[in-house]
Amino acid sequence: MKIKIRYYGQLAEITNKNEEFLSVNINTVGALKRLLSVQYPELEKFQFQFAQDNTIVDENQKLNGSAVDLLPPFSGG
């Protein structure tokens, strides 16, 4: 499955990109998290959440092919 990953805030700095497409052979957000932490070891130091279809999801969430967002702590206002 090819999925778009979008990086926000400090995570865009860490990965040095705003988004990328990954061809993956995994089914869950948790598996994606493990895969990304191999690709970007620095991510382990940061707190972040995942979102899919504009909703925060936990690691058990199935990947459905929509873009997945990596969101650091919110700091609006």
Partner: peptide
């Protein structure tokens, strides 16, 4: 809004 909106 400050707690829940993904703004950075």
């Amino acid at each position: 809004i400050k707690d829940k909106l993904p703004i950075f």
